[in-house]
Nucleic acid binder design. Structure first.
Lengths: 245, 245
DNA sequence: CACACGTACTCGTCCGGACAAGCGGACGGG
DNA sequence: CCCGTCCGCTTGTCCGGACGAGTACGTGTG
């Protein structure tokens, strides 16, 4: 037995290696890639595997394939599809044991109006609030609050004051079989509350960027809500996208 | 001879048919798709073909596949890729003759530090600033400023005080053969300047959302810069995206 | 009752082979 | 010289089979 090592699939090996050579300059943009049969010999795999790897590279924009001619290098794919914002998604996978993250508060509270509206609850319903502060380079960079309705908390570790060792997505999927299907984010600017100013160590007159994210299941129902409060002066939200046409 | 008909590949037939059934409601969201071997029998194709079709559907977000369990319907792929933000892109195509838009100022100014940095100019270089205010339902909703370096303005109508009848993208493409390849956006929150507060009709203590967009050509060079200033209380920026598996 | 185990079914990966179709250069007839 | 044919190369599609691993469920044992 043994061999605890995780063995990556062969097509992934081919993809990684070819991508490395393109980034490396071994296969400059415009050049012709080795033919499928050459790659079959070099990597000692079946043609199925080589074709699969090449199709993945094509899908991601690294190469173009031309019937009867060969595969040509396009170069490192542009920033298309890379979305830098999407804080909500990053949130889902971030364990609270990550360095710089501190769980500052966990407990039942009255749901704020906006949160109650998103969750479809009456104003003032009791929900579990879980709040964590992130400090980067000695500077408080954001304050994340998640609100969970009671039925979602039952059977989970969400109401435990200690940091969660796995991301929210993993935890809710394994414990409650809940899958987050899509996320709706809304962005605003406002002045911080007294508590936010204190935790983030900013003045009460310094604006904050606030992102509220609704976490939807496949039925479009919001299962829980996350809010990220960031000092507005640290321009945190960036996004790059390619222009169609 | 004859048989001029274009024969689509079999995997495409499978993809189209399964997609049709999902859209049709035959396979509602959350339901279990027929297993691969069932599909092999139904469509009378090899498993390679079925797997390929299912992988394409997964790639496009129609289904999720779970090892040992089956393939599950996610539904018509959501607004993935369509981002509600991307104000910068909307800006490029919006003619200034649109109702509610007023050109409030056009003229040479010293480039603000951030703009100069993006354009690769020395601080204090002279650039053309073009500023337009958008009013919706009697309420000032945003203030857009575009900065153009002098060599870009030459030969265009950008320095004319009247509203441009076509979008910036069209104008720059036809007149200067300039194509915007991609856009980088940066979002911050701050207090408005005196002028911004006056134009937007807000108090000087009310935070604003500010988006600065660099318009890049294919060589990644920033050709001009746009800034959108919005009252923070009108939560304007929304985004919905699906969560990858 | 709780738990380990076996079994049937699922998807993930991979193989070697096969045929079709597009491309490009060599070759030969006009 | 031009042009059509042929041939060797390429990619596109497809097959049937194989093995591994993950899941669900029933069954038997303690």
């Amino acid at each position: 037995m043994s061999s605890l090592e995780f063995e990556p699939p062969k097509y992934a090996r081919v993809v990684l290696e070819l991508r490395r050579r393109i980034e490396n300059g071994d296969y400059p943009p415009g050049s012709l890639l080795p033919s499928e049969s050459q790659l079959v010999r070099e990597f000692a795999v079946g043609r199925t595997t080589v074709v699969r790897a090449l199709q993945m590279l094509q899908q991601d924009g690294w190469i173009t394939r031309e019937h009867g001619r060969g595969s040509f290098v396009k170069g490192r794919p542009g920033p298309a599809g890379v979305r830098a914002s999407r804080r909500g998604l990053a949130l889902l996978d971030r364990p609270e044991t990550q360095p710089g993250v501190t769980v500052v508060d966990v407990g039942q509270v009255d749901a704020p109006a906006e949160v109650a509206a998103l969750l479809g609850l009456d104003g003032g319903s009791r929900v579990l609030a879980r709040r964590a502060l992130t400090v980067r380079d000695e500077i408080a960079s954001d304050l994340v609050t998640c609100w969970f309705p009671p039925e979602l908390v039952y059977g989970t570790d969400l109401d435990q004051p200690g940091p969660l060792p796995v991301g929210l997505r993993d935890h809710l999927r394994t414990v409650k079989d809940l899958r987050v299907d899509h996320i709706s984010e809304r962005l605003t600017a406002r002045l911080p509350t007294a508590g936010e100013a204190r935790l983030l160590q900013i003045k009460k007159s310094e604006p904050v960027l606030v992102m509220v994210a609704g976490m939807h299941d496949a039925s479009d129902v919001v299962r829980f809500v996350a809010e990220v409060v960031m000092p507005g002066s640290l321009h945190e939200l960036e996004d790059v996208y390619s222009v169609p046409d």
